[in-house]
Computed example of a mutant assay.
Amino acid sequence: MSHLLKPLEAGSLTLANRLVMPPMATAKAGADGSVSQDVLDYYAEKTEGGYLPLVIIEHSFIQLAGKASERQLSIAGDSAIPGYKKLADVIHRNGSKAIVQMNHAGSAADQRVTGIIPVGPSAIANPRKGTVPHELTIQEISEIITEFQKAAQRAKEAGFDGVEIHSAHGYLLNQFFSPLTNQRKDEYGGTVLKRIRIHLEVIAAVRKVVGKDFPVLLRLGASDFTEGGSTIEDSIVAAQEFEKAGVDILDISGGFCGYMMPGGSSEQGYFSPLTAAIKKVVSIPVILTGGITQAQSAEGLLAEGKADLIGVGRVVLKDSNWAQQAVNSLL
């Protein structure tokens, strides 16, 4: 049987095949971050037929200070729940499972959008934005952890099948993980274990409100691919800690390099060296995304044990029927 068409169980999630629609910002939310009709129509179209059994919706900000851009989805207040309920229903009707990706942009937030001075682990210029953030106090870190917790509770209440904690692409949790932006001298900075302390506290806080059977994913920017930045060695340590802490699935991408390799790469599954290394040390499923546009390539990456699930982003963005064609080509 095709590797891509094999079902997968992860925690309480049962998936019919190995395809995942990864989070991609659409800028279709209402001006206040609400779920608009445009958002509902977009996800209805992308999930039609249920060929993408797992859909991780685009990043939702957990507090205004962490908003990355205009028309980004907001899960920052209880008033968001009815809109998210509609979104979960649309995706479920098509036979797919739906995950909310919760995010805080940290020093990548846009002050013109938020009206708030951006925050970060250290008062160091963001390598991608140039913004020098306000250095978070221990009290402020604790408040952000609580906001992640509340956001997870809202996602569960809205009927979503799980949540994903965003620590990739140079956003706040990734800023703590990366030595480029985390030069703290307290318990949140220094060794890898100290740099992921905030992650472990977020995971614990989320678990406390969603219970043990609600899937919690974590997206990890597993390397900055930059001198002095985070490395795959750091991520091997972090991944094992995240599994111990109760993460159900690891979703691997880039750190400060974003979702592309530095210099660009046209290789199918260009982050596969990262996922292959992490897969060796964890027993939970690992998602690989990055340039995968052909069903045969996805099949090959799974067969070689490079990953357990394959994220197909840009190709699904361009062609809503891609997943159906991919599945049919392997039958």
Rank of each mutant, 00 (worst) to 15 (best):
P127R: 01
P133A: 06
G120N: 12
V132L: 05
I165V: 14
D186W: 11
Q139R: 14
G190L: 11
S142Y: 12
I116Q: 05
V100S: 02
E147Q: 14
F176Y: 11
I165E: 08
E135P: 13
N126G: 03
I145E: 03
Y188V: 04
H134V: 01
E147Y: 07
E157S: 12
E135S: 15
T181C: 11
F176H: 10
Y188F: 15
Y188R: 10
Q111Y: 02
D110V: 02
A105Q: 11
F176L: 03
R128A: 10
S142F: 07
S122W: 14
S178P: 03
N103L: 14
L172Y: 08
G190V: 06
Q175N: 11
A109P: 01
Q183L: 03
P127T: 08
V100Y: 00
V119Q: 07
G189D: 01
G190S: 14
F160Q: 01
E187A: 08
Y171C: 10
K185D: 04
T114S: 09
A123V: 10
S122D: 15
K185T: 15
G159R: 03
I165A: 02
A168G: 13
L136Y: 09
N126H: 15
G162F: 04
Q149N: 10
V113E: 13
Y171H: 15
L173A: 02
E140M: 06
R184K: 14
V100W: 00
E187S: 07
Q149V: 08
H134N: 05
K129V: 00
K156E: 11
G159S: 07
K129C: 00
S142Q: 15
A105T: 08
I116K: 08
N103Y: 02
N126Q: 05
A105S: 15
G190A: 12
I145T: 10
T131M: 04
I116V: 12
P133R: 00
G162E: 06
L136D: 12
H134I: 00
L172F: 05
K185A: 11
N103V: 12
P133S: 09
P127V: 03
S178F: 08
A123G: 09
V113H: 04
A152I: 10
E157A: 14
P121K: 00
V113T: 13
P133K: 01
Q153T: 06
Q139N: 11
L180T: 04
Q149G: 13
K150N: 07
V163N: 07
G106C: 13
R184A: 13
N126V: 00
H104G: 10
P133M: 06
H166V: 08
A168I: 12
T114F: 03
N174E: 11
L173I: 05
Y188I: 06
A168Y: 10
Q101V: 01
S178Q: 10
V100D: 02
E187W: 00
H169S: 05
Q183V: 08
Q183M: 04
Q101T: 04
P118I: 08
N103F: 03
A155F: 10
T146G: 12
T131C: 01
L172C: 07
A125S: 06
H104V: 02
N126R: 02
Q153A: 14
E135G: 13
V100P: 00
N103W: 09
A158C: 09
T181L: 05
A123C: 09
M102E: 05
T114R: 13
H169P: 07
R184T: 14
M102Q: 13
H134S: 05
G159M: 05
M102H: 10
R184S: 13
D161M: 02
I165G: 01
F148M: 04
R112D: 11
A155S: 15
